[in-house]
Design a binder for these strands. Structure first.
Lengths: 215, 215
DNA sequence: TAGATTGTTAATCGATTAACAATC
DNA sequence: TAGATTGTTAATCGATTAACAATC
């Protein structure tokens, strides 16, 4: 086993690795037992430069063969391992609104190792509702469930106004990483990992280009 | 009025502009009539280099004053104009599931000029349901509504398996831009603008860093 | 004026792409 | 072998940061 603990993948690299993974899966290439694929073929599918692909594979410890290419199953396993998909990540979802419910009910993230231990809401009327496989829990249960399941990841889908309070509470309860869907910037200690999912950026990009094209 | 039709903002620039906009709004700076702000102050708030900020402002036509800084309202207006927030963008949401419903019901995008003309679903059981201010429409209404409202933007929240078929149909109906939340890659003509909102990337980034930190 | 801040040029840094020897 | 493909170094490109004259 190649030790990849010491290497550090930046966000662009992670995104590219996920792109390779997606295209390989999408084309059902992983089903061809012992099948191989060249960096040029992946480049053709994904639009990413073939030199870049070979470098990325080198970083995650995948070795290819001259005149043959890379063994598909090796690539898939290495990407899963590098990205942590082969480890289950327990998590909690805070906010049982439409977005929180969508994430809690979505099965696609399970392939990435995500396991949702519980879904919380502050609204008493929502407590007890069943969304996906989850019963909406009151926030009072937060500490207990986080400890019980050794949860380190929280998925935040509360309104902007409530985000900071909940965040402080999550950090006190031992959360180490926050996937933030609230349209606000969180004030957090440096050691906590945050990913702000700013959907507004996507919309801005589209409206901007639409405007450009119509002129 | 500065002509910004000819300039081209890339994705990083758009993201930075939105960041400035967010921090200026978040700190209620726009309410200070005639108030000014320096690039160093925005740098402090946003973490973006002050030289970069001055360059971005130059690109969107905002002029500052020595020893004073930039007039807040001018900055806000210029960003809104550059990003197209001052123009209403009619759109349709395809897929009245939890995610589609969340987007259709969310009011935050209105500030960016987004107007949702209709919400569609293929499932007959969902037709007629009320989500937010919208009645779920059958796909048969797609062409009529797109023409009626001159819709050019479609927001796609259908399962991966249905995404390509719907996309083809949308393009035939005259859609020019697609905000794709389906976890799949769409095959589309070059002239159509697509933004793939790959939430899996965010999750991968977090699980990767959690794994790194625990070793 | 002195000094703070802009606007812009130059330097640095990192990411991407090209080139090509090594390999099978 | 000849030729296709990897692995890696070198070159290019673009984005970021530093420096600093101009300005008020």
């Amino acid at each position: 086993m190649v030790n990849i603990n010491t290497i550090s993948l930046n966000r662009s690299t992670l995104e590219r690795l996920l792109t390779y993974y997606h295209f390989i899966n999408h084309h059902h290439l992983q089903h061809s037992v012992g099948g191989t694929i060249s960096s040029a073929q992946i480049a053709e599918l994904s639009g990413i430069d073939d030199t870049q692909i070979r470098k990325d594979f080198a970083v995650i410890g995948v070795k290819g063969r001259s005149r043959v290419g890379f063994i598909v199953t090796e690539v898939v396993h290495a990407i899963c391992h590098a990205l942590g998909f082969d480890v289950t990540t327990p998590s909690v979802v805070i906010g049982a609104g439409r977005l929180g419910g969508a994430i809690a009910a979505y099965k696609g993230f399970v392939k990435q190792g995500l396991n949702i231990a519980a879904l919380f809401d502050i609204n008493p009327e929502k407590i007890g509702l069943i969304i996906g496989d989850h019963v909406v829990q009151p926030l009072e249960q937060l500490d207990i469930i986080i400890k019980q399941h050794a949860v380190r990841l929280a998925i935040l889908t509360v309104p902007a106004g409530a985000a900071q309070d909940i965040t402080d509470r999550l950090i006190k309860a031992g959360i180490k990483a926050i996937w933030n869907f609230s349209p606000t910037s969180l004030n957090i200690p440096r050691e906590i990992i945050v990913r702000n999912e700013r959907l507004a950026v996507g919309l801005a990009e589209l409206t901007y280009h639409l405007k450009q094209n119509s002129q």
